[in-house]
Design a protein around this nucleic acid. Structure first.
Lengths: 214, 214
DNA sequence: CGACCTGTTGATTCTGCTCAATCAACGTGG
DNA sequence: CCACGTTGATTGAGCAGAATCAACAGGTCG
């Protein structure tokens, strides 16, 4: 948790509706650098400020009493997270690969609730799509949806970079890391992807992958 | 889809923070009665107005291309639904058992976005809790969580009324209706519940049920 | 009464988990 | 430079939980 001196503006900020309003209205703090696996906020922490990802990737996690973990979301550059209904965080946020985060502290009584609402609704829409994934799709379909979604967010429809490790993917897709390996193997055998390296996947048949997830 | 002449105010309205502000600011329309299985809005419909449940129960559904259904939420009296990130509904809403709905139409440019935000964040919190359910809990745990949640919302911690049928419960919990039957049977055999009738469950050991779901 | 719908239960199948071995990449210290 | 330990990923064997396929019971409605 140290201050990153060289601030690098992320590329897609202006493409996110509502975000520029928010940045104008909420005095943006400096960018804080969170190294791999550093905790950004913990479960039970007081909620309030929002967090803008400048670079890197963040995971939002929740644990059951007996230690099973679910990652409810990954956030990449340009996305805002940290919304809570009551004043306390029900999940915790960690840096996946070293992430730069800008904290947006609400001014007393003069937040632009309109643009916050826009972002919160987007978060809701993402979460609902993820519900469908976990509730009604099998392992292959979940992985296909994950790859297609990441590719879209990275703006490259022929290859995907996976900054997180297999265990994270498993906890995001509601399965085990062994199954993640097996499913990637299965998609490879189907000729849909190619594993350029452990964390770089080439999408050989984007149309077929998209067809697998609606 | 007919107008219910006798309007019955629901009991818990004032316990929902943000709701009274919303009702003050958004001119509430008359209550419309939706009989069992009637569609309140369809997937693809223009979004915008919000919907307040006055009585009865509503299900929010989504379908995969090949017809698998997931119910992302049930809504009871006092709850508001219909939030969408963009202008189009990604899910559809249906009456479960005959529901009275009050449509809240936004006035141009003068909605109380603050109270809408509060309600949207509550919806997000619910959805995230449901994610955990579908991603990391087995059939018994899902059912226990469902019963405990319904009991709390119905304000009775010794029995639960199930207005929906097994198929709906299955699609809410991400399983089949046969498994719903079997799981209820299993909880009964464990001495945790008693099936007073098809749609009335007595909670014999609330503490144990709560322990099953964190 | 018969047709239909909902729910329960049984038999079987199958997807994904558990347990476990192996392997590659990497860092450390002798 | 190499032996060693560690960590992440892959693969295999067997198992368990839930799905599927199927039969049947009770209730409702024409």
């Amino acid at each position: 948790m140290q201050i990153q001196p060289s601030f690098r503006a992320h590329p897609s900020r202006d493409t996110h509706a509502g975000l520029s309003d928010l940045l104008l209205a909420m005095q943006p703090a400096a960018v804080t650098y969170f190294p791999t696996d550093a905790v950004i906020y913990a479960e039970g922490d007081a909620a309030g400020p929002l967090y803008l990802v400048e670079f890197g990737m963040v995971r939002i996690c929740r644990l059951t009493a007996d230690g099973r973990r679910l990652i409810s979301a990954f956030h990449t550059a340009g996305e805002v997270f940290g919304f809570e209904a009551d004043g306390v965080h029900g999940s915790f946020a960690e840096s996946v690969d070293g992430a730069g985060i800008r904290v947006l502290r609400p001014h007393c009584g003069e937040q632009p609730t309109g643009s916050i609402l826009t972002l919160a609704l987007r978060s809701l829409a993402r979460t609902q799509a993820h519900l469908m994934l976990l509730g009604r799709r099998n392992a292959n379909e979940r992985m296909a949806a994950f790859l297609v979604d990441l590719a879209a967010r990275q703006g490259d429809d022929s290859s995907v970079y996976l900054p997180m490790q297999r265990y994270d993917i498993a906890d995001y897709l509601g399965m085990t890391f062994e199954t993640v390996s097996r499913v990637l193997r299965a998609l490879k055998d189907l000729g849909l992807i190619r594993l350029r390296s452990t964390n770089e996947v080439e999408l050989l048949d984007l149309a077929a992958l998209e067809a697998m997830c609606d």
